[in-house]
Design a binder for these strands. Structure first.
Lengths: 343, 343
DNA sequence: ATGAAAGCGCTAACAG
DNA sequence: CTGTTAGCGCTTTCAT
């Protein structure tokens, strides 16, 4: 049963029922009696306004899209959980998409979602530089917020880690312990955040009076295979680094697997600082020193930005498209036992 | 621009444009020429049929809801990824909800989603027995598929692990290594799957001629705190078990943390068999023996069932509601080094 | 304080 | 092969 049938049943007009059921009774000064009657009947007959009808009328369905490279990555699943929770509290649903860390999949998914008339989009862009993505964002009139990886030169506001400082912080752990030959396992060197983290580690070396070119670098992706082969590249060298920084959340897996293959003990033969806190980081032997992201705070900021933009774009058509706010959060150092003095 | 404006622009009727743009040109034998013109223009003007309008007409928006206890749990995030991928290929989007392992949250979320006129729902029920959930499913006309945890006595088909065998398999690892005093860390004892796994471990003990009552049991939830305190209960006993089975994916975290606190070496002082494969299970020291679930296959089956039900419920109104198919998948044993002989 | 009526954008039955 | 038309269910202006 829909609201017009309910209205007929009650002898009221659709408008009245609609007003009551969509919580605008006050606004239209519907009499207390009527409100009660309608609510009771709605309850009894299990009637709720059909969101598709309402959506058509309003031009919105109360859904925002969330496009992540891989929901399986703990960072993104935590993000998703926090975002969903926050949005739900304002009656907005989250539609999920995985771009599989693939830039062209990302583009085509974004295209589809743009078409679906969502209220807005939250995008964690795939690392690779993508002119196509940039221009889609630019051309679209949909409120979009970027997260995790800023995309310079777009109007979309972004929320991410203070990556350069974070990279510095990571390297400093190793330097402070006395390491001089350091490995760096990158994620996707094309992405802004990876680049920033990388520059940060170089900064730290420089500040310690070590030639940043001495950094042993490898890595070109987030998959198990890629991080594994990159780890091997770094750790199988004759002049093997005594410490390693993994710049992506997945990287630690490759580093651990390789260390295991080479029977390197941690931290005696290899010190590790890993980006992204994982539930198991503190629990394994030895507990891993990590650079954590304040995920929940970041999620909240994302939602705030999105809400602001959704209001803007619905009220003011020619909203200032150039504002491009970027927010950066400080990384958290979780100091544990995977860093020791070089042997 | 919408399709009727496009139609006017081109001098065609809305119907024609609609038919072309929704891929029914063949069906209505639209002339090749017209099709081309329309498609070109649609491309040029960036016109796609508004899904809300279409949704209103069809009564469906091409969205299925996915309700999981916690997207942060690797099992569920893998499931979500696989489900999303499969559904996407048939043009269906996934709407995500976290019930936060809370039964009443689950109910209210399900209520909301039922209201949102989704095409269907995939639910991984929270463990606790819930009459409310059962009856909501029973009363709803929406196609629903259950996953991970079957809910006996509902019409909804379900996909889950062959839990009892899996429990047996887990315990057998310990028994085969010679353990006789075994601990069992349960997840949510209220859930069907937990109960089955538990019964399985008891089966195994019995089969080995050991009194199942000797099993040292604890555990009543999935949170870090709960699994931690349960682990402590098991491992801090004077007659500490020499081996432990963790029945939930999260359990291993509690067990590891407690083992670490007590400075128990694995597997020398404590052998572990853990339910659910995690990316890091094989990589830590020692690699953990796990009982893995064939997540992707399970996801595929879920989607097949959902599709079947969606077709049924749209064609045949009084579809046989009693079919209640349940599918069970065999667990995979990942034998590694966390099981040794008791000291 | 309430009702009537005009669409929102689309699809599909019906009509050529 | 293509056009006309009648809604799908709702919100909201306008009218009272």
């Amino acid at each position: 049963m829909n609201i017009s049938e309910l209205a007929k049943e009650l002898g009221f007009s659709v408008s009245t029922v609609s007003r009551v059921l969509s919580g605008n009774a006050e606004k239209y000064r519907i009499s207390r009696k009527t409100v009660e009657k309608v609510q009771e009947a709605a309850e009894a007959f299990q009637v709720t306004p059909d969101p598709i009808g309402a959506g058509l009328r309003r031009g919105k369905m109360g859904i925002v899209g969330l496009l992540v490279p891989d929901i399986t990555n703990p960072f993104f699943s935590q993000l998703a959980r926090a975002i969903e929770l926050k949005l739900r509290s304002s009656g907005v649903a989250v539609q999920l998409c995985n771009s599989a860390e693939d830039s062209s999949t990302e583009i085509s998914l974004l295209g589809k979602m743009l078409t679906r008339r969502l209220d807005g989009m939250i995008i964690a862009p795939v690392g690779t530089e993508s002119e196509a993505l940039r221009s889609m964002i630019q051309d679209s009139s949909m409120p979009i917020v970027l997260v995790d990886r800023p995309l310079p030169g777009t109007k979309a506001p972004s929320v991410s880690l203070e990556n350069r400082n974070a990279g510095r912080l990571a390297a400093q752990q190793l330097l402070a312990a006395g390491h001089t030959l350091i490995g760096c396992l990158r994620g996707a060197p094309g992405s802004e955040s990876d680049r920033e983290r990388f520059e940060g580690t170089r900064d730290a070396l420089r500040a310690a009076g070590i030639d940043p070119e001495s950094l042993v670098v490898a890595g070109s992706g987030y998959s198990r295979e890629e991080s594994l082969s990159a780890s091997a590249l770094i750790l199988r060298r004759p002049d093997r680094p005594t410490g390693i920084v993994t710049l992506s959340g997945q990287g630690i897996l490759g580093a651990l697997e390789t260390a295991r293959e080479l029977k390197l003990t941690i931290p005696d033969q290899l010190s590790i600082v890993a980006f992204d806190e994982q539930p198991w980081s503190p629990l394994i032997e030895p507990p891993i020193t990590t650079i954590a992201q304040p995920v929940d705070q970041m999620a909240n900021r994302v939602v705030e930005l999105l809400n602001r933009n959704m209001q803007k774009s619905s009220k003011d058509e020619n909203s200032d498209r150039e504002t491009n706010e970027s927010y950066f959060f400080d990384a958290l150092l979780m100091e544990r036992s995977s860093v020791g003095s070089p042997s």
